[in-house]
Design a protein around this nucleic acid. Structure first.
Lengths: 141, 141
DNA sequence: GCACTAGGTGCGAGCTGGTCGCATCTGGGT
DNA sequence: ACCCAGATGCGACCAGCTCGCACCTAGTGC
């Protein structure tokens, strides 16, 4: 089984262990998110409906919300436009260029020191996850 | 004249110098933004219509866009919900708590070193202005 | 297996936060 | 005072969700 498939199985098991039902739609949505980072809800609908055309977009929105409450996925904003969905275990932050729209992944651990300093100075546990860090990439500066 | 009034006059002059017309509505919108940081467009509509009930909300949206293109104001996102508007000259970043919604202002200069490091390591000029930095305040941790 | 039922789903209406087309009006140059 | 490009009021429209409701089904108990 692919790495994405294995990640999906872990999430499905965790969902069931939390007392949630595992339906065809939920399984398909989890597989799509596990295999493709930073898709929008509508893009997820598109992928899911290839194999399961009966799954409605409102189900996808509701399932993503359920999975987020279960701590399995997370949404973030890369800029204007729809939210993007990723696995909660995703180990990267996003640098999103406001010029060309490209998104650069950087290891979260690289910002541990910054987070420590902000905590010490302002008493604030900054997360950098819900919103991408925006700015200009080297090509657009 | 108040400090906010003086800031408003500077912006109005700058707008005219850029070849833009200064109308009653634009003047009122600038005065509201200069006097109140981080209002939503609808809140600005409310303030403006107290004195000028004929000013339409679409005018406020269009004027804010014009002022942003002119480099005089900027919108940012503190979380979900509507964008918030501030003067482009605002010298603070926002730490927005995802627990209680409170927003802590911190001097931009405090992040100069982080920005320098991100530039050196990833070639990315990070701005921290379009999106607030989200996380948990000391009370919510 | 089979029935039962709480929880999940399809469907479509509705909502928030804007964006846009168009006829009318007006700031500011002459 | 006149003129007209650019600004405005108004309402229709749009993206990106959110929700109410009737129907359906996963998973439990037998």
């Amino acid at each position: 089984m692919s790495a994405a498939g294995q990640r999906a199985e872990v999430l499905i098991r965790s969902l069931r262990e939390q007392g949630q039902r595992v339906t065809t739609g939920r399984r398909a949505i989890i597989e799509v998110v596990a295999a493709n980072a930073d898709l929008s809800a509508e893009e997820i609908v598109g992928f899911v409906q290839r194999d399961h055309p009966e799954v409605h977009s409102s189900t996808v929105y509701r399932t993503l919300e359920t999975l987020e409450e279960a701590g399995l996925v997370r949404h973030l904003h890369l800029g204007h436009g729809p939210a993007r969905w990723q696995l909660a275990a995703d180990p990267s932050y996003r640098l999103a260029c406001e010029g060309c729209g490209t998104v650069q992944l950087v290891p979260r651990v690289r910002f541990d020191e910054v987070r420590r300093q902000v905590q010490a100075e302002f008493g604030f546990a900054v997360a950098f996850q819900h919103f991408a860090m925006t700015g200009r990439c080297s090509a657009c500066q």
